[in-house]
Nucleic acid binder design. Sequence first.
DNA 1: CATGAATGAGATTTCATTCAT
DNA 2: GATGAATGAAATCTCATTCAT
Lengths: 192, 192, 192, 192
Amino acid sequence: MSVTEQARRAQIVAAAIDTIAEEGYARASFARIARAAGLSSTGLISYHFASKQDLMDEVVHTVLGEFGTFVTERMNAESGPAGELRAFIAANIAFVKAHRTRMLAALAVAAGVTAAGPDPLLEADLRGLAELLRAGQRAGEFRDFDVDVMAVAIRSVRDGVLTRLSVEPDLDLDTYTSELVTLFELATRGNT
Amino acid sequence: MSVTEQARRAQIVAAAIDTIAEEGYARASFARIARAAGLSSTGLISYHFASKQDLMDEVVHTVLGEFGTFVTERMNAESGPAGELRAFIAANIAFVKAHRTRMLAALAVAAGVTAAGPDPLLEADLRGLAELLRAGQRAGEFRDFDVDVMAVAIRSVRDGVLTRLSVEPDLDLDTYTSELVTLFELATRGNT
Amino acid sequence: MSVTEQARRAQIVAAAIDTIAEEGYARASFARIARAAGLSSTGLISYHFASKQDLMDEVVHTVLGEFGTFVTERMNAESGPAGELRAFIAANIAFVKAHRTRMLAALAVAAGVTAAGPDPLLEADLRGLAELLRAGQRAGEFRDFDVDVMAVAIRSVRDGVLTRLSVEPDLDLDTYTSELVTLFELATRGNT
Amino acid sequence: MSVTEQARRAQIVAAAIDTIAEEGYARASFARIARAAGLSSTGLISYHFASKQDLMDEVVHTVLGEFGTFVTERMNAESGPAGELRAFIAANIAFVKAHRTRMLAALAVAAGVTAAGPDPLLEADLRGLAELLRAGQRAGEFRDFDVDVMAVAIRSVRDGVLTRLSVEPDLDLDTYTSELVTLFELATRGNT
DNA sequence: CATGAATGAGATTTCATTCAT
DNA sequence: GATGAATGAAATCTCATTCAT
């Protein structure tokens, strides 16, 4: 592949990422991507990519490639699993912080997680969860963590299990239940 | 709103849920929903719902309403925040287990979480994470949890933070980093 | 199927026939057919026909249906194979005479015979053949037929064999050679 | 025109013939022809041919040139119109036998005869015609020819007249009717 | 001469929505 | 309330042709 071709592909991929991040995956049509890239025609995208799927594959590959490099570097700086896990989590968030739109675009394509507007019902749920956690802290049953972060974590895991289930339909949900109950018990319990 | 009207709306919402669950959100067009509902025209959907957004709002409202009732009932059976949290987590998964497709449909609309096929890169990531956890268990640094569940949990939280970020762009990611590092340290560390 | 629907389909089929006849099969796009039918959008064609193939199938079916009825009626008026064959040939040409464009459109779709412009080389060929036939008449070897008709017939059979060959690749061409040589010998030889 | 230029044109024409023969005229795009020719760009075709029509003209010219030479040689070996006609018919089929794809490609372009799949309606027609002929043979009205060949011949002439009509719209169809009726009467009648 | 890149028109098809009956 | 028909915009993809290098 020539250097010009590579540059064009990269330019189109970048425009696709921006478009997905700004307008959502569903609205990331060739027309919008071409406009974002300053191309004269959607035909040019078809010229460089065999299909829309091909373009989206490259979007995912590009971002997850950067992401993987970023995370791996930070994990290698640590020794021992516990340190590596700390590094993994921190690096994940650090990458998200630095490349929010890129990462959102990649997940929108690969994991089907799109940036939906704040749904009132889901927000209420989250607030209710935070209140429960705060009550637990006041009662001395929970340690002193950030209740909003914990609420997001709990709900994220719920959603993550659901998504996982669509990939692996035969998941043993009883195991998930007991494991996750234990997980958050350990993560929340007071020091007593 | 008349009884007939309510019944029709419910019928259409049910068909929409089925269609989203079976064909995915992107393919849930009025034509397919009408076919699933046994309606003779897509015009009937437009007659009963102001717009597609309106229908989708009702889809979310319906399922999350059922979900809320289900979870709240199980939480009320417990007393004390710790018990309620356990009940919350267990009830979440129990509902998912019982109403997988309904819940997937609701999340597809509300949270933009669609059932994407298993992306090779993401699967590899998950396996790598599981291996790290297993290594930590062998080294005695981690307790004896199910590594697959924990890996899903960790990644889910990463994705959840990202999604949260698109709703609340000014999230304090440094707090998230330290809180989540602590969360998973407590959740994974050995008994020593 | 409602009467309105039938009428619309018939109107679209008629417009398709006209368009194919006037502009050729290759140029008979939905846009041109819609324009010919006075429709507001190509979407209406897609609304009434599942695909372009579906429309074209109906074009063929419609015309060949009319054609079949026409020919069969005239053949039934005769008794005995020789009379029926005469009726068949005459009816064929009579139908072509009356419904030239319809028949051309049907053949364009079904048999891949499109109205090509007069190619100089093919025209020269035809003239050469006519001259040969005229020479034979002058020499008394051939009977007194219309040389242009005979030339068209001979060439048509050649093309027909070729087309047939693409449908039935294992055709026994040696049989075809001897049979056709005999056929045209009988058809052309003088009365001596 | 330089030798190189001639070679390139010939190469492209050959690739066009192959592509038309293998994929059909409608699918013989510059992209496919370039690929078949092993060219790196469709631009090269445009460089050597003024337009697609120009290329197709050369396709026809090339094949019909070879064809003409082949047929003329065999006709010259005969003396007298009747022998020449025999030679013409035999040579036509012999060329078709030897260069089926080339000839099909040329006719696809020049005469609009493309290799269409076997249309059920047309096949039924042909079988009906063959049965009529066989009935005539059994009744002693027809001589002992191959009914399939005769059926193909009769239908080919009908199609040929139709095609002819699109080139020469003022054809005298009454003459055609009587001439063709006579032609096939002579070609089919029994020896009585 | 050859190449790869670019162009813009045009293809079929799907879609949410509107409207007369 | 329900139906079928119609609308027009927008989608992806293919195409012949042009042009700078």
